[in-house]
Design a binder for these strands. Structure first.
Lengths: 210, 210
DNA sequence: GTTATTACGCTACTGTAGTAGCGAAAAGGA
DNA sequence: TCCTTTTCGCTACTACAGTAGCGTAATAAC
């Protein structure tokens, strides 16, 4: 792919200037402060040029945030509790990075901010939703591998519902950011993994030895 | 509160007409199809009158959806597995009701639709966010009571982290609707509760009886 | 009654996302 | 060199959220 195209080639510096400008506005002023007109003006670019690359403001915002994400590898140390906790911390870090965008540091920050707008963007545009689902699928496949190896080592139940386990873990983080406004930090990641591993049922039964 | 006010009283029929019209548009065409100008025109009301009641489109949408929700009581039958499953089904029903708004029935419906827009509305406006958190807090307090009673009956671990358990349960539902696009139905509710109750760790140790 | 107060409808306005159409510039292919 | 294709900048436009100001209607307090 990427063969030599026919007409005038795109100016890569234009892409760069737009994305840098948009990133500045988005991180400083949040989603409503990301104005297409202002991005175009500050980047020294016609608005139509911008729309030739990203068809909506949502698409531009997704492109900006996608550049800020680091890789989504997952460590496998052989200790499932430690590895899942590390995985949760990675997700929490990514969420917290977006969460604080666009608001003064002194403010009581319970808002989902940019995270919520990106989720909504995925709901508004099929292609963005599909991108998000692919990111999720990739991340989830890696985590399923981690769990499967731990299961084979005997750390986890043989009949474990791994998909549900991952929904519970990641879901709790998103839920706190998007719905309850509660913080997601290292301490919570540890409580979360502990709860999921241990289960809720009471198992203390007096050993029945004849 | 609600003392006799000074000036001309508000026309309750105006509220009703606006909300009915807005509900029709929102459920039929989804969030982008909810146009303030069109609501005002169809309801036979000036746009300024509408804005006197709901300061933004987001507020109007929240008011519409709030009227569609039923009560959030939680059954307590004495069987924690059954009760939690019922609670999950209630949340799933509410999510699914909003999820299908505004799209043709034949379409492959992975989108979060109105749910995502409402979450974003909570992030955009502090007062809406606060409302959402109060709904959550109320619901959560009821569920915490349910869990505490089950714990006292001995069904659940004495050292259970109940807050985390509820985050895991409700979080998984929201996560599937908002992020992964997976369905949330009765079968999933059962898997979810089973996973949370049983835990992930392998506990099969040969009983050590001398 | 009169007055103060609030609701309502109306017109006109701003700001922003997104589109249409045009001419000029930059490339490849003939 | 000439033709085609695509990019880019420009101007002008639509659609929609939200606001400002005004005249008028409906109510309570006096």
């Amino acid at each position: 792919m990427n063969q030599a195209r026919r007409g005038r080639p795109r100016d890569a510096q234009v892409d760069e200037r737009i994305l840098r400008t948009a990133a500045g506005l988005l991180l400083e002023r949040g989603y409503p402060g990301l104005s297409i007109d202002e991005v175009a003006e500050r980047a020294g670019v016609a608005k139509t040029t911008l729309y030739r690359r990203w068809p909506t403001k949502d698409h531009l915002a997704v492109a900006v945030v996608a550049r800020l994400q680091d890789d989504d590898r997952i460590d496998d140390t052989g200790d499932i509790r430690r590895d899942l906790t590390g995985y949760m911390e990675k997700i929490a870090d990514a969420l917290n990075r977006m969460r604080s965008a666009g608001r003064p540091a002194d403010r009581d920050d319970r808002s989902a901010g940019v995270v919520a707008e990106l989720v909504a963007a995925g709901a508004r545009h099929d292609d963005i939703g599909e991108m998000g689902r692919q990111v999720y699928a990739r991340r989830n496949a890696l985590a399923l591998g981690l769990i499967e190896r731990a299961r084979l080592r005997g750390e986890l139940r043989a009949d474990l519902d791994a998909a549900v386990l991952l929904d519970q873990l990641a879901g709790a983080l998103y839920y706190r950011v998007l719905v309850t406004g509660a913080p997601v930090d290292r301490a919570y990641a540890e409580r979360l993994v502990a709860g999921a591993l241990d289960g809720a049922l009471n198992r203390k039964e007096p050993p029945t030895c004849p």
